[in-house]
Design a protein around this nucleic acid. Structure first.
Lengths: 216, 216
DNA sequence: GCTAACTTGGAACAGTCGTTCCAAGAAGGG
DNA sequence: CCCTTCTTGGAACGACTGTTCCAAGTTAGC
């Protein structure tokens, strides 16, 4: 009865995500989206509505395509601190090398722009933050069950710390911070979360990474 | 021999800082600066040059007016961890209440926008990051000298963690995170840096904040 | 009071912003 | 084949982008 779309909206949205990701909400013009996606203003507006709605859709897509899988992995791994380590190793890798190097995180970037005053956007940011926190908390709970967690470490507090760390990594990577320094920070945050060496170790905790980094 | 300016460039730059701070680089138009400062385009351009140069000047001004004093305070206090605590308490206060509430940090925000690809801006961000790191490191070194620091904590690594924490606080505060949760994160990061209870305490460290937060 | 040096308001620039509208085209059910 | 329904390219919208320019105004030294 009617014509069907001459493009795949899903694929187009993925492209849109990349443009917003790289240039930000306010730094991206409709013209840029038109050229990047290859379709015309009409199709863009008919499919996604105004720029704000398109941006919100891009945020949702980013979360489901990039954030959610990582969250699910760290939360469901069952390996505790090892899963957390892998989560951050993958994060640093993601931010510093490959096609997305230097782009930071779309969600993190959204915090810093005027777009975060939009209630829809802010709700997505809050939701994303809770998911990140919950995923990390789940991993830390698992770590506790496995006896990997330092007795003084609380999964909830630890998750909050790790979430803040993730934002820091995302942010600094966009300004060109090198992977090595970011990895070092991650390790420094993880160190005090680890349980002390198994049985007869001295009463001070130590971790292989902080032990001999700055000894003379 | 010539006419002098009918305004105070220093005061104007302070106003410009506030506009960029709230709305971001790309989110701010010349018209907005004109209305905010009250002077005309001519004076604006004659005094500060193009938008990019004005933005860079605003970044520098922000650093010297807002960042540097806080850095100097935490680095020169001589009170070690107490100075770090006060630094972050003031930070959270700054970000969550008062006239700048919800604005985040101009430098942190600059990380997320397209402006961070400008080499001048990136250099300022790097310089700012090093200063932040150095100030925190100095405070931790002092803390070590005062015996406040946990034996396993390294000042350099700790400073890197605290710097990342600062970015996280700045970022999340802009999205409306409440002061309480931010303070909790700060406390959770600080806890493992503290030396264990003075003499005959048990071998596990504990801090008053993490001790009884989630007990049933 | 003249002149040289500077500032200032405001017009004007070409370009881009986000958005809307319409005529032309395409597709499937009747 | 037609007609309805949708899509599509592209023109057009007014508003705003950053920047430049100029005439008028203001000041200080001579």
């Amino acid at each position: 009865m009617a014509d069907s779309k001459h493009f795949d909206p899903d694929a187009v949205l993925d492209t849109v995500v990349e443009v917003f990701w790289r240039q930000g909400m306010v730094g991206t013009g409709i013209q840029g989206l038109v050229t990047a996606t290859g379709l015309s203003r009409s199709s863009l507006y008919a499919t996604f509505g105004t720029k704000d709605r398109l941006y919100a859709a891009a945020l949702r897509r980013y979360i489901e395509r990039h954030s959610a899988p990582a969250f699910a992995r760290v939360a469901g791994a069952g390996t505790g601190l090892a899963a957390v380590e892998e989560f951050f190793a993958a994060l640093v890798e993601y931010r510093c090398s490959g096609g997305y190097a230097g782009w930071g995180c779309l969600i993190t970037n959204a915090h810093a722009g005027p777009e975060c005053e939009d209630p829809v956007v802010r709700d997505l940011l809050d939701r994303h933050h809770r998911h990140l926190h919950e995923a990390l908390r789940a991993a830390l709970v698992t770590a506790g069950r496995l006896g990997q967690l330092h007795p003084a470490a609380d999964p909830d507090a630890g998750a909050a710390v790790l979430a803040a760390l993730a934002y820091g990594v995302n942010l600094r990577s966009r300004a060109g911070a090198d992977a090595a320094s970011l990895t070092a920070v991650v390790e420094s945050v993880l160190a005090p979360l680890r349980a002390p060496r198994p049985p007869g170790a001295p009463e001070t905790r130590d971790s292989p990474e902080t032990r001999d980094r700055k000894s003379p």
